[in-house]
């Protein structure tokens, strides 16, 4: 494990291979057991066909997950994998990534896993900025436990556990992540493979914690939750594409600043090009990213998709390694010396 050149980007320390890789190399021999039609299939295929382009040694890639339908993901990747316990994947991945900067570590989690039982670990992983890629499969429902509402379900959600409708306000995962000091926050959708892969590409090469919310359809318990974003009639109007350096627009809408300092979505034709907000994902101030994350309220009239925020900040594992190096500058610890430290005396 080399600990010397830690200033690179997300994958700088991960050994590479020149051998040609294909999607097939990353498919494990395990039978995939999601419901037919589940959005998880599309995400799996997108990931499997994307990772070869990273050119990493397959044995240096690890997928760690919690519990949920989505968390079965690691079994299907022909890499190292750890299907752990509910909500704890960020903690487990933190220990792995902190002690092995030579690994590309991916966390697979669901909306319940990441935001309910594991909420604490998620926010702390984000603020620490450890070198992880967290893929949050948001289907706005508890899939594996057969359809209870989740912390991202809309208010009033009728489910088995909320026959009269859910009462609690959901989390907006992007707002939460931006508020938790995340250095990389993005949103994408299971049905748009090209976009999904472009976001993964940026996430993988970002050094630090990348949070990618993936809208994922659960066709059994919450079908069509993201239908507006998929419907050919609607999607181009609803989807606000976030591309660094580009004006933030959909086919018919545009984002501009309000005089009060906030953001608003207006009819694209009604504003001059110069007034449209140009996306700056690298802005050190997170307030615009946060404001962008609020644009989809009330639900899905217009939904920003893409990288909300991507800023450089030292990663925890890097800082930790630097402290270790500094401590070892004068040589590695000597056990005999350690045991004989402090006041000693000899008898006989």
């Amino acid at each position: 494990m080399s600990e010397t050149t830690l200033n690179g980007r997300g994958l700088a320390l991960v050994p590479r291979t020149d051998a040609k890789q294909t999607m097939k190399d990353y498919k494990s021999d395990q039978e995939v057991r999601w419901c037919p039609g589940c959005g998880d299939y599309a995400i799996l295929a997108a990931v499997q066909s994307f990772v070869p382009e990273l050119g990493l040694r397959r044995e240096n890639m690890v997928f760690v997950s919690g519990i949920g339908c989505s968390s079965r993901f690691p079994y299907y990747m022909n890499t190292y994998g750890f299907h752990s316990i509910h909500g704890r994947a960020p903690a487990i991945a933190t220990g792995l990534a902190a002690s092995r900067p030579d690994l590309s570590v991916w966390v697979i989690t669901g909306d319940g896993d990441a935001l309910s039982i594991g909420g604490n670990h998620l926010i702390h992983a984000l603020r620490r900025n450890i070198n992880l890629n967290i893929l949050l499969f948001n289907n706005r429902i508890y899939g594996l436990t057969k359809g209870q509402y989740s912390p991202t379900s809309e208010v009033g959600k009728i489910t088995k556990s909320t026959p009269m409708g859910s009462l609690d306000k959901p989390f907006n995962p992007i707002s939460l992540a931006v508020g938790a000091e995340a250095s990389f926050v993005a949103r994408t959708i299971d049905s748009d493979r090209k976009h999904l892969q472009s976001v993964l590409r940026e996430a993988a090469t970002h050094r630090g914690t990348s949070l990618v919310e993936i809208y994922q359809n659960c066709n059994i318990y919450n079908d069509n939750a993201f239908e507006q974003l998929k419907d050919p009639e609607l999607r181009d109007d609803i989807t606000l594409r976030l591309e660094h350096g580009q004006p933030i627009v959909s086919a018919s809408k545009a984002v501009r600043r309000t005089p009060g300092g906030g953001l608003e979505v207006v009819d694209r034709a009604s504003v001059p090009e110069s007034e449209i907000l140009v996306h700056d994902a690298h802005h050190p101030d997170p307030s615009v990213a946060f404001a962008l994350s609020r644009l989809d309220e009330p639900a899905f009239e217009h939904v920003p998709i893409g990288v909300f925020r991507s800023v450089e900040r030292p990663s925890y594992d890097q800082l930790m390694s630097e402290q270790l190096e500094q401590a070892q500058a004068g040589g590695r610890g000597d056990l005999h010396k350690l045991l004989h430290g402090g006041d000693t005396w000899r008898i006989g």
């Binding site: 690890v62 760690v64 750890f82 752990s84 704890r88 903690a91 487990i92 991945a93 933190t94 220990g95 792995l96 990534a97 902190a98 002690s99 092995r100 690994l103 604490n120 670990h121 702390h124 930790m320 402290q323 270790l324 500094q326 401590a327 070892q328 004068g330 040589g331 590695r332 610890g333 056990l335 350690l338």
Partner: peptide, 27 residues
């Protein structure tokens, strides 16, 4: 005792503490 290559991680709670230790063990 970082000079022994010891990594100490003050976690957000006990669950994360043991989780990180187990993740490191996997590694």
């Amino acid at each position: 005792h970082k000079n022994f290559g010891v990594r100490t991680f003050q976690a957000e709670d006990e669950i994360a503490g043991v989780g990180a230790a187990l993740g490191a063990a996997f590694g």
